[in-house]
Design a protein around this nucleic acid. Sequence first.
DNA 1: GTGTACATGTAATCCGTTACATGATTCC
DNA 2: GGAATCATGTAACGGATTACATGTACAC
Lengths: 221, 221
Amino acid sequence: MVSPNDPAYPNLPATSWAVLGMLTHSEPLTGYDAKKWADWSIGFFYWSPSISQVYAELKKLESLGLAESRVVTQAGERDRREYAITELGTRAARDWSREAPVEAPVLKHGVMLRLWMGHLNKPEELKAIVRAHIENIEGQRAQAALRAEHSRAEPGWAFPTMSLTWATRYFDAELDLARALLDDIDEAARQLATVKHKDGLGNPVPIEPGRWRAIEDFLED
Amino acid sequence: MVSPNDPAYPNLPATSWAVLGMLTHSEPLTGYDAKKWADWSIGFFYWSPSISQVYAELKKLESLGLAESRVVTQAGERDRREYAITELGTRAARDWSREAPVEAPVLKHGVMLRLWMGHLNKPEELKAIVRAHIENIEGQRAQAALRAEHSRAEPGWAFPTMSLTWATRYFDAELDLARALLDDIDEAARQLATVKHKDGLGNPVPIEPGRWRAIEDFLED
DNA sequence: GTGTACATGTAATCCGTTACATGATTCC
DNA sequence: GGAATCATGTAACGGATTACATGTACAC
């Protein structure tokens, strides 16, 4: 039984909507094409899929009636399976993108995790990690900027272009934050020096920072 | 056979190192405590775990000799299993955080994914999504700032404090970017209007934006 | 002849979640 | 009396990856 407040779109992971979204943008795509486009664009802010997952997602969308496929045979070429969005799929994509609950972005920042346990290593080593991170991000920033430029020239791609522009600015912000960390690391190390001792390996570790249980009341918010 | 270039730490997902990292910071923790601390701090930039995974990770760390546990019985309280890091674990955590390859952060930005397919809906509806997103992030920002403040007062927590400060700035940047989107959406919609037609539902969709395959040479970078 | 791009898929596995099961204590 | 917190775990499942299998065309 469908209540009047049930969503007008099937319950699928955002990843499936990403694939369907690609189909709303273009003429029929093969799995191979979808993988390339996702890497080129969506990968900066949501998803850079494995090729096998793309094929699986397309198959699933078709089984749900949101997409349909046909096999294209051409002389001197391997057969390709081209997927196109259906009317049902277009409506579902539209409804999902308008009505889905707004969820906070999810970040997995491995570099920050390592800095979180920065008391385990010397400041110079931590800063080397951050410098390598900055180089990484500079590369990604340049790539996003170039792609935004290319995308801008493509009629109908105003929103993908906006996303790439956003990604470029996002990397700029990430670079600012990372550069600030270079000083923050020294400051934190100085701070820790006032409470540290030396362990068996001669590296700084904090003295009994106090048990979580004992201080949790203080930390409530 | 171990080659001289093999890493000095076992090959584990970053998540396991996060749990071990908590153990480097404090006296013995229960799974329940670890979950709370992770949510309170690491969740902003890496990981907000399910409680069942925390228990599983701790068990795994113990089986690898990186942590050890004992059951604590207290009158009038349920038994608790407290985990402490071992010497081997401390060395492994130190080596991992210093030597692991620097990987780019992974972002899953559902809101941006929906804007990427913004041609499916009206600009006002897209802006409503962004406004809800801004409210979300303002809340997270406030929380991170408060926690950074609390953390700062705790001796030995200089690096966790630095991470929370970073998270606060990160949310500030995210807010700047989101606010800029409110104008960018109108601009993109105006841009699209020059190439759009009306579909059966009266909503704007782009006309044949050109097939991915046909333009990919142009987009190489 | 070697590598890369095109092209599609299956199988095994991993990481992590949700659902479930259990039970004491404390606060309203 | 009921909800929330403390506290620990198992089982089932889902989302996504890597490894594997296969084969053509084209450039160097």
